[in-house]
Amino acid sequence: MNAIRLFTVARREIQRFLRIPIQTLISPWISATLYILVFGVIIGSRIDFLENIDYIDFVFPGILMLQIIAGAFGQSSTSLYFQRWTKAIEEMLTSPLSYTEMIFGYIIGALSRALIVGGGIYIIALLFTQATPEHIGLFFFYVLIVAIIFSLLGLIVGLWADKFEHLTMLQTFIITPLMYVGGVFNSIDMLPENIHWLVKLNPFFYIVDGLRFAMIGYSESPLVLGAIFLISVAIILFATVWVLFHRGWRLRS
């Protein structure tokens, strides 16, 4: 892997999202601020369902994860689709860039956006709560692995999409609904016992729960199993994206 080529792709990705900061950075910060304010502070101050844990601390990991996922997914999917649409992708296809360099370049770009979005939200959260992670290593593990997974998913959608509308389909119909029912705002104990099994089938439950444990030490899922699951998904997605790039699926005519 050539460092100049790899970091050129990453640099181009970073400059692309910095070119449109209102859409890529400020919008998620405002959105997260509203979530924190309304659910965490206004409504949360009246909720007392867990001993020793404020509701704002309970919901914050989910709110943070929502925006990290949206940032990573939006960056890679929109960038790749836009490059296909303008044919600017041919600049890369006719260059000596390897498929691995291209994919890692996109991932670094998406990670950068996710981390800047997440960092901003974290700073905003400090205005309302302590938000100090109890397990800093685990905190970064969950943030990074989830951003990687969704940047890879974004690349698949960026390849598959035929029109701009397709880019939002996964987000609207799968990611957001599964996140909302995956325990962002509620504990699994607040749900009827006969649907607990359904929640446990939702992969987003393990994502939110893992980050929540890293931040406040409270967990409702088997963490090791969740971590193994996330690492496996990242490996499978990377292999899938590599094969698609190598075959030139929707990239080369």
Binding site: I4, R5, T8, R12, T86, A88, E91, M92
Partner: peptide, 23 residues
Amino acid sequence: EFNADIFAPLEKILNFVGGYFGL
């Protein structure tokens, strides 16, 4: 056909392509 990022300044386009070629 013109196949470049329409929003990117010309010098950036040249810089990126130079980078893709490892310069």
